[in-house]
Design a protein around this nucleic acid. Structure first.
Length: 921
DNA sequence: ACCGCCGGGTGCC
DNA sequence: ACCGCCGGGTGCC
């Protein structure tokens, strides 16, 4: 194999990485061909003015090498890894030393300076372009103050002597790099007279690839995945449908590397923890900025390392990999491989998937057509003593669905032993579990078992499969629940979820970590190949992501088919938007409130303080939205929007209480800006921002006296946090209702539809959804007046009451209520309300996905009727504007997970734009 | 920086 | 003592 020491044409692609690579045409076995390549940092911008022509590189020879030092590391944030290249840049205008030579990392961020004595010698050479100098940090990349750097001098042969002489004058002798500095045991000397850094020779003959070649390699990796996709028997979801029933992320290969090409970590990333190179001040400033940006998310790690002693600076790690071709063995594990011989046509997992998620017909069909019974495949998963049991973990709310699913649909088809691992009576004997075909449990049971792992049978069984239902519940990598899940021993891992990505790609990464999908479980690899390209909108990034997703998911949408047959034959679902006009009286109140709010908001906008008055803005919006529903909803306690500066502490506190109530009752599904998850024990700060209590307390503890609000940098104090009092938010409503009930445009529209429906077909059941539970209370009155039987489900109800409500609604008998009042938030995943075939969405939600999810409570497996959804929207109101924002969000979601994840400032701007849209500014 | 270097304090054992 | 030695302050260019 000839060596090709092509050098990268770009000066800035300095990072050295070592790759072994597949050469499937080769007569060599897959593992013994390695390519040495210079890796292009995928996000690196070529900002260097030193970019050279190819010609320069071709004629360049190595003059010699020199060990120098990079100093002043503590003053700069640029990080570098061992064996990574650095760039030298003259800094003639440095006020301390006109000979200064800056050292930059692969991203062009300054790492430090060349120590001044050496810089004095180098300055002339660089200025006169007598030689090109490349640096590689051989070790000590983590050092806090100085680090070594191996410099190699390159240039035209005729300049060699002048350079050597010049360096000699300053007391530096160029030479070959000492043996001790070499990595590996390559033939450095033989190569040293040709172009290309020679001191990084890998174990085997190396070919250096250009950055272009590398990129091609990356793309190939993913293209191959795409090809696998063609063998998929499930048609990939066409278009961007929101009607995903189950997105199944699967791991078919036992935690082995992704099989197309085996990718093996060659060097483990060292710990991410490092010493501070920043002053405390800098660090605090940086941390504050981080809080609301993506970088914060990135700093979280699954392993929780360093979470207690938070590193002062996150070091971007570059990790080296080798990968070799998929071996024959791996071929067998290719996902969705269905080209196997007839007698074992179907992958065990296919059968399992169909047994679990397909319709019984699909199972039966397979059985008939292929002559393979599901029971054989599932329960006789292997020889005696081998793993055979599948563990299903789900939220409590869907536990009963699983039981139903097995009892009604699967058991009649196949014989399966099923054990529900739940409740105080659950077995302690792992043998009992491992004798089952399927064990079903909940996240909470698992999590509580995890507390005493050594006792837990769940943690003793070696599972064949672990299936996570509603798998996005593990998206917080630090939650005990997640840890508990990750601690399970499993050969294959499945994740069922309708929403694999809720906040960011990070969510997906959590899932991929569970699947042990190498190499993407490595944070750095994931980040480099997927997250960064996608978030920066880099070409090809999305394609890779999509290729990856396609290849690890089985998508079953309402249109998915297995061999031409629909997986799920759901009845039609239609969504109508019914516009309504406010009555003159309502309109009057609305307009005056709107003008008042507009005035306040436009003042904030012009002052540029809108985001620090977010709660006020929200208050305006919520009140307008409430007015669209019913004037009673607008709490009289909130009559004044503006916060006056000279109010007494008690006043301020009262206002904050009002604000937090607003945020919580607004249904805006506010997220905590710290954990980026939905609010848990919400508290409001004095600057009126709402966070999870644990989150903000942590911030305060960490920052001590200097704690600042992550959103507006207002000062924070523990004793100034206001919690939401647990009093009944509806009490004022109830009073009003008792005193003098009145209708509203929307209630009128709803009641008209309901009465009309009852007249046509009294057996049809409806769900009435609102984000405002108080609105549900008002509707109750109207329902009673017209003699409707109804039940109610909202977040304030205990689990017991919820189950009661659901069960009574699902009952088919005549006494069963025909209407379910549902608060949007309570209508989360798993809730099964298939008794209803009509949905009335009383007010638009911020998040269209939340609406969709709600509709799917009745439009799901078990629904026999056509489902009609009616969304009420008040014309010329904040609601119409919300629809605009919704469609914007939908577009974003359709563009696959919102590329260009945008900076925090962009996000802020977007939020401001949203607000302006909403109030017609 | 668990260094080197600087410069002030100090001075038998 | 125009030294040595000690120990604190300090730290890129």
């Amino acid at each position: 194999m000839s060596r090709n020491f092509m050098r990268s044409s770009s000066w800035n692609f300095l990072q050295l990485a070592r790759y072994g690579r597949t050469a499937n045409h080769s007569q060599f076995s897959s593992s013994n061909i390695f390519f040495h390549l210079e890796e292009d940092d995928l996000s690196g911008e070529d900002t260097s003015s030193l970019a050279d022509s190819q010609e320069d590189f071709d004629s360049a020879i190595l003059f010699g090498m020199l060990r120098g030092n990079v100093v002043g590391l503590r003053y700069y944030s640029g990080v570098v890894n061992n064996n990574e290249m650095v760039a030298l840049q003259r800094e003639p205008n440095n006020q301390y030393d006109r000979n200064a030579v800056k050292v930059n990392n692969v991203n062009g961020e300054q790492v430090g300076h060349i120590k001044k004595e050496l810089a004095a010698a180098l300055a002339h050479i660089l200025d006169q372009k007598m030689a090109k100098i490349e640096g590689v940090v051989p070790y000590g990349a983590q050092n806090a103050f100085t680090m070594p750097v191996n410099l190699s001098f390159w240039g035209r042969a005729e300049n060699k002597q002048a350079v050597l002489d010049h360096m000699m004058k300053y007391g530096f002798r160029l030479g070959p790099i000492p043996n001790s500095l070499q990595l590996g045991h390559g033939s450095a000397k033989s190569k040293s007279e040709r172009a290309g850094p020679s001191y990084r020779a890998p174990i085997l003959p190396a070919v250096q690839m250009t950055t272009e070649q590398l990129k091609t390699e990356f793309d190939k990796l993913f293209e191959d995945l795409k090809e696998d996709d063609k063998t998929q028997e499930l048609e990939p979801a066409e278009g961007k449908t929101l009607s995903v029933i189950a997105l199944i992320l699967t791991n078919f290969y036992d935690g082995r590397p992704f099989p197309t090409k085996k990718i093996k970590k060659q060097e483990l990333a060292e710990s991410d923890v490092l010493k501070s190179n920043m002053s405390q001040k800098q660090f605090k400033a940086a941390k504050k900025t981080e809080l609301s940006t993506d970088s914060r998310k990135e700093s979280e790690t699954l392993s929780q390392e360093a979470s207690s002693s938070r590193p002062k600076r996150q070091k971007a790690r570059k990790t080296k990999y080798t990968y070799s071709s998929a071996s024959e063995e791996d071929e067998a594990w290719l996902p969705r491989k269905v080209k196997a011989p007839a007698e074992c046509t179907l992958h065990d997992d296919d059968l399992f998937a169909n047994a679990l998620f397909g319709l019984p017909t699909a199972v039966r069909k397979k059985k008939n057509k292929k002559g393979v019974t599901v029971s054989q495949s599932i329960s006789k998963a292997g020889p005696e003593g081998q793993r055979r049991t599948t563990l299903i973990i789900c939220p409590l709310s869907v536990l009963s669905n699983w039981i139903d699913q097995f009892e009604q649909h699967i058991k009649p088809e196949v014989h399966l032993n099923i054990y529900i691992y739940y409740g105080p009576e659950r077995t302690k004997d792992p043998k009992v579990l491992s004798d089952q075909d399927v064990v079903v449990t909940t996240y909470s049971v698992l999590s509580s078992d995890y507390g005493s792992r050594s006792e837990s049978p769940l943690h003793k069984v070696k599972w064949l499969r672990v299936v996570l239902d509603e798998g996005h519940t593990i998206r917080n990598p630090n939650a005990q629940q997640t840890q508990a899940v990750l601690s399970l021993e499993a050969q294959r891992r499945w994740i069922l979820t309708g929403t694999p990505i809720q906040n960011s790609l990070k969510d997906l990464w959590s899932l991929i970590c569970f699947l042990k999908l190498k190499p993407f479980t490595d944070r750095e690899w994931w980040h480099r190949t997927i997250q960064r390209p996608v978030t920066t909108g880099e070409d090809g990034g999305l394609c890779r992501l999509q290729a990856l997703i396609k290849n690890i998911t089985l998508r079953r949408t309402k249109t998915s088919k297995i061999r031409g047959r629909p997986v799920l034959d759901l009845p039609e679902r239609k969504v109508f938007i019914q516009h309504v006009e406010l009555s003159e009286e309502e309109r009057q109140i609305y307009e005056s409130l709107k003008n008042e709010g507009k005035a306040v908001i436009s003042r904030y906008v012009s002052e540029g303080t809108i985001l620090s008055h977010y709660a006020d803005v929200l208050a305006v919006l919520v009140r307008l939205r409430q007015l669209c529903c019913h004037p009673f909803l607008v709490s009289s306690a909130l009559s004044s929007i503006t916060t006056t500066a000279d109010s007494t502490p008690g006043d301020v506190r009262e206002k904050l209480v009002q604000k937090i109530k607003l945020v919580l009752s607004s249904g805006s599904d506010e997220e905590c800006a710290i954990c980026l998850d939905s609010l848990n024990m919400p508290v409001i700060t004095y600057c009126a921002h709402v966070f999870c209590k644990p989150c903000i307390c942590q911030v305060i503890q960490h920052e001590k006296q200097e704690a600042k609000c992550p959103l507006c940098r207002g000062s924070l104090r523990l004793d100034q946090l206001v919690e939401c009092p647990q009093e009944d938010l509806d009490s004022s409503i109830n009073k009003k209702l008792e005193q003098n009930w009145m209708c509203s445009t929307k209630i009128n529209a709803l009641m008209h539809a309901l009465v009309d429906q009852r007249r046509k077909d009294a057996t049809v059941k409806s769900i009435v959804v609102s984000q405002f539970t108080s609105f549900l209370s008002v509707i109750e009155v109207a329902l009673r007046e017209s003699g409707f039987m109804f039940t109610r489900l909202d977040g304030s109800m205990t689990q017991k009451k919820r189950t009661e409500a659901i069960q009574s609604f699902q009952r088919p008998d005549a006494q069963s209520p025909t209407i379910m009042l549902l608060s949007l938030k309570a209508g989360g995943v798993g809730l099964n309300l298939t008794a209803a075939s009509r949905v009335f969405l009383m007010d638009p939600a911020w998040n269209p996905a939340a609406e969709e999810q709600c509709f799917d409570r009745c439009h799901r497996l078990g629904q026999t009727k056509k489902v009609i959804v009616t969304k009420f929207v008040v014309r010329n109101s904040v609601e119409e504007n919300m629809l605009k924002i919704q469609s914007k969000k939908r577009e974003l979601a359709a563009g696959a997970f919102g590329k260009k994840k945008s900076s925090s400032s962009q996000l802020k701007q977007a939020r401001i734009e949203d607000i302006r849209t909403l109030v017609d500014l």
